[in-house]
Design a protein around this nucleic acid. Structure first.
Lengths: 191, 191, 191, 191
DNA sequence: TATGAATGAGAATTCATTCAT
DNA sequence: GATGAATGAATTCTCATTCAT
C-alpha cells in the first residue's frame, strides 16, 4: 500500500540523516557546538531547518548522533586488529592516532572539546566516559600480553600520552613536533 | 581631586576588576563560556550589568582578562623555583599539576576547553599557544640540566603526559586513578 | 468499478473519517486545540498525516467536522423525547446534562471553550450560536407546555443554570457539588 | 549611589509592567491566549519583544500577572460592600456582573476561557479555582444572612446562574436577552 | 562611577501544510 | 487512496550590548 517503497524510504532517510550528521560534525568542529546553530547547519546541508528536527529531536540529540557515528567508525577499525601481535597492535594504535590527528584535526578537536564542555548533558558525558574506559581496557590487554607488571597503570599512561600529544597539537598547531613525538613513542615502547 | 583619592580610586578599580574576573572565571568554569551570561556574572559579583562594561568592553574581553590573570598567577609561582635542583623542579611541576587538578578541576577544565575552542579569537589563541610553549621551554631546561639527550622531545613528552592526565581526569572524573598516575610519573622520572 | 466496490469504498471512507474525528475530539479535549497537532492526531489514529488531509482540508475543517458530529449526536437524542410529558422532558434534559458532565467532562470542556474562542471562524461561531438557540427553543416549548408565564425567560434561565453548573464543575473539578446541584434543580422545577 | 533615583526606577517599572499587562489582556481577550504571540503583544504595546521578558519570565507568567491584576480589581470592589444589607449586596453582585458583561465582554470571555483551557498550568488552575470558591463563600454568607435554609446550595446555584448568563451572552452575542435575564434574577431573589 | 531598563538580533523548536511517489 | 519527507513561517525565549539618568 505504501506509495514510495519502504526500501526507497529507508534509503532516503539514511542518506539525509547521514548528510545532516556529517554537515553538523563539520560545523561543530569548525565553530564549536554552541556557536554552530541549527540554522547554519541546515543551510550548509542545503535542507530546511525543520527537517533536522525530523531526524534529531533536538540539538543535543544531533550531538549524540555524531558521537555514535564516530564511535561506530572506531569500532569498525577494530576488525583490523585480529591476528596481530601485541607490539603490532600498539604500533597500530599509535599510527591510527597520528593519522587521524593529521587528517582530521577538526574532528579530534571536536571530540576532545566535547568531553570538557559543562553544557553537555550527563547522558553524553556517560557515553564519552565509557568510550574512554573501553580504550584504556584495550590498551591494558595489550600491555598484559606484553608482560608489563603494571599493565593498567601503563595503559592509563599510554592513553594520557596520546591524549596529551593530541591536545598539544591542537593548541600549538603546525609548530607542534608531531613526527618527533611519534618517534619518542616508538622508542619508549621499543617498537 | 587630591592624589590620595586618585590612589583610592585606582585601588577600588583594581579590586572591582578582580572581583569581576574571579566571578566570571567561576561562572565560565561551571556553566561554560556560552552559557554563563553577563547578567548572571554581574549578579553573582553583586554589581550591575552596566558596570561590568566599564571594566571589560565585551564578553570576549572578559575572557582575555581571565586568561591573563591565570597566566600571571603561573608567573608568580616561578619565583618559588629559584635555587631548587632540577629534580626538585620536576617534582614541583608534577605536584603543582596534580594539586590544581584536585583543587580546581573546573578551572583546568575551562582553560583546557579554551585552548580547543575555535570560537576563540586569534589574540587569545596566540596567548594560549605562547603560554604552552613557555611551559615546554621550562621543562626543556630542566631536562637539559638533567642531561637528557633529547631534552626538547622529552619536554614535549612530559608536557603531553601531564596534559593527558588532566584530560583523562576531567573526562572520566572520580574513577580516574590520579594517585596511581602520580606514582607512575615519579617512577618514570626517577624522583 | 462495480457499484459494489464503490459502496465498500464509501463505507471505508466514512469509517476512516469517523476514526479521525473521534481521535481528534479526544486529542483536542485533552490537550487543547492549539496544542494537539495534526501529527499527534494522525499517530493516535494510526494513519498518516497526509491521509488526514484527504478527509479534512485543514485543521479548522477538522474542528468543524467535530462540531457537526457532536451536534448530530444531540439530534439523535431528540427521538427519545417523543411521547414524554413536559416534566419528563425537563427531567431528561437535566439527567442528560449531568450524565455527560460526569462521563465526558473533557468533551464538555472542549465544546464550551469552543464557544468562547475568538480564534474560531465565523462559520463555526454561527453553528455554535444556532445550536445554543435551538436548545433554548426546546426548553421554551417545555415551559410553555408547563404553563409558565414567562416561558422564554425561564428557558434562558434554565439553560444558564445548566451551563453555569457545567462551567463550575469544569473550573472547580471534583470539589464541585454536582449531586447537590441536581437536587436543587429538581426542587426548583418541582420534579 | 543610584544614578536614576530608586523611586523613579520603581515608577518606571510599575508603569511599563502595567502597560504590558493591559496590552496583553487586550490581546489575549481578542485573539485568545495561544494565538496572541509575545511578538504581537510587544508590538501593540510599542516595546521590544525582549522587554516583556524583563517583566515576565515567560508567557504563562504574563497570564498569571493578568489574572492577579483582575483579581486585585475585584478585591477593590469589595470595599463598597461595607454596611450594606444582604439584599443590597445581592443586588450589587448582580449589577456588577451585568455591568462588566456589558462593558468588558472580552475580559469576561478571556477569564472564562482561561478556566477551560487544558494548556493552562496547574498553578493558574489552582488560582482560578480558589477565586471561584471565594465568590461562592461570599454568596453563601449573603444567603445565610437572608435565612435561606440551604445557603451553600443556593450560593452555588446563584453563581451558576450568573456564570451561565455570562456564557450565554458570550456565545450568542447581541441576541442574548441580557436585560430580561437581569429582571429574572431580581424577581427570583425578590429584589 | 553606577544602574538597570530597553533593544534587537538570533537561537531552538514546533507545526500546518504540500507533494513526489 | 496513502505515505511521510520536506518546507518555511511563526513562536518562545535568551543575551550581549547600549544608553538615559
Amino acid at each position: 500500500m505504501s506509495p514510495r517503497s519502504t526500501e526507497q524510504n529507508e534509503a532516503q532517510r539514511a542518506q539525509t540523516r547521514l548528510l545532516i550528521l556529517e554537515t553538523a560534525l563539520k560545523a561543530f568542529a569548525e565553530k564549536g557546538y554552541a556557536s554552530a546553530s541549527i540554522s547554519y547547519i541546515a543551510k550548509e546541508a542545503g535542507i530546511s531547518k525543520g527537517l533536522s528536527y525530523h531526524y534529531f529531536k533536538n540539538k543535543e540529540d544531533l550531538l549524540v548522533g555524531i558521537f555514535e557515528m564516530l564511535a561506530g567508525m572506531a569500532d569498525g577499525l577494530e576488525a583490523a586488529w585480529e591476528g596481530k601481535t601485541p607490539r603490532e597492535k600498539l604500533a597500530m594504535a599509535i599510527e591510527m592516532t597520528f593519522q587521524i590527528l593529521k587528517e582530521q584535526p577538526q574532528t579530534v578537536r571536536f571530540m576532545t572539546a566535547l568531553a570538557l564542555q559543562p553544557e553537555v548533558t550527563s547522558h553524553l558525558k556517560a557515553l564519552i566516559e565509557a568510550q574512554k574506559l573501553i580504550n584504556i581496557k584495550v590498551y591494558e590487554e595489550i600491555f598484559t600480553e606484553l608482560n608489563y607488571k603494571e599493565a593498567e597503570a601503563e595503559a592509563y599512561a599510554f592513553g594520557a600520552l596520546l591524549d596529551g600529544v593530541a591536545l598539544g597539537n591542537l593548541a600549538i598547531g603546525n609548530d607542534y613536533p608531531l613526527d618527533t613525538m611519534k618517534k619518542v613513542l616508538y622508542a619508549k615502547y621499543d617498537l
